Simulated scan of single mutants.
Amino acid sequence: MAVGLLLICLTGLVFSEEPPDVKCLVVNLDHVQCMWNGSANPAVNYTFYSRFENGFKECTSYVLENSTIVGCDHPYEELITLRFSKFTTKLKLGNRSFEQFHGLKSKVKLNAPVNLTVKNGSGLNLCYYWNHTCKTRCIECDVRHRIKGKEWKTILTQNNSYCINLPSNSYLYELQVRGRIKELCGKSDFWSDWSPPVFWGSMRESHSTVTNKPSFYSPLQTTILYVVGTIIFFILVIILVRHERIRVILLPVLPDPGKNLTKILAEDNVEEWLPISKGIKEGFKVNYIEHVCSVGEYSHNPQSTSESSADQSSSDHSSGSSASLAATN
């Protein structure tokens, strides 16, 4: 009798207490997790039921804490769209039940991104890639990275990749990613947990994940190369402008064939452009000495006609006499 009265009193005490508040969360668009251990574990074990549109379904996977039921993980299909519908939960204890309505549209928590890796991207960039275990494109990612353990820098991206421009391999880079449902698909109030960090660069820790580490110049080295190259270029230009001989050697002037041929023909210097050997050219040179002969100019003195005739007669007479004398002899 005493035991029965004690049980009745305990049962009355339980029923007189306020029912526990149930809080539900859509986990990775795979199942709905509802918990009712807000401030402390309940004194009794409740039976849990839930539904979206159809009839109630009893929980298939209870969450236990210190041998007491404190929650339920109930799988549902098509949660990407069902979460926009009204969700109803019911806790039942004996003949009493407590129903509660929930809006799950903004209560989605994804799993942390996985397979976070580092690769050498195009254009001397360092790119990070990752995947999601949830099969949906309605995810935006929050990426944070820091250099040498300093302050985090955060950026929001709609892609599953992120690139850092011109990293220095003398620094240690650390990056983490988390995700959530984006605005166009019913923005969630909950971010996923941060992914495990991935490291790249010098002084990497033993648990870092690095693949295909790129080897290229740091930004400072690249700047120095550009400056030195520019200085060398200007020095060469100055040398070419101020030193004629070096300019001719480095940039010889190409002759004009038409102009040179005209000059050779005008100077009658054919052997200079004919392909004649040096020995033959030497043969054309004068190798003897000719005596100089003095030449005087002949002067003609004009005479009168009579004197010319007399001289001609005398000459003829003299010739005839000479001929006669020769015949007599």
Rank of each mutant, 00 (worst) to 15 (best):
L110E: 09
H243F: 11
H74G: 06
Q33Y: 08
G179F: 14
F216W: 12
S324G: 11
G149F: 04
Y46G: 00
K259W: 05
M35C: 06
R178N: 03
E53Y: 06
L25M: 14
F190R: 10
Y298D: 05
V44N: 04
N115G: 12
V44E: 05
Y49S: 01
S122P: 05
R245S: 03
E271Q: 12
S319M: 13
T68I: 09
K187R: 14
G38T: 02
R242I: 12
I249E: 09
N115V: 07
L79P: 02
N212W: 13
Y217L: 05
F48D: 00
L251H: 00
N41E: 06
S304W: 05
S218N: 01
L325Q: 13
V270H: 10
R245Q: 06
Q158R: 15
V241P: 03
S39A: 01
N41K: 07
N115P: 02
H31G: 05
I181D: 10
D189E: 07
P19F: 00
N269K: 13
K86W: 11
V108I: 15
N301V: 13
E17Y: 14
T60H: 01
F190E: 10
C141P: 03
V228S: 15
I246E: 00
K187Q: 09
S215Y: 08
C34N: 07
R204L: 12
I280D: 15
T133L: 06
R144L: 04
R96G: 00
Y171T: 02
T230A: 10
T262I: 00
F87Y: 09
V253P: 05
P255R: 13
F233P: 05
E267K: 13
I139Q: 07
E78Y: 10
L172D: 00
F52G: 11
T211D: 03
L6K: 05
I155W: 08
I155C: 11
S215Q: 10
P275R: 01
L7R: 03
L64C: 10
Y171F: 07
L126A: 03
C59S: 00
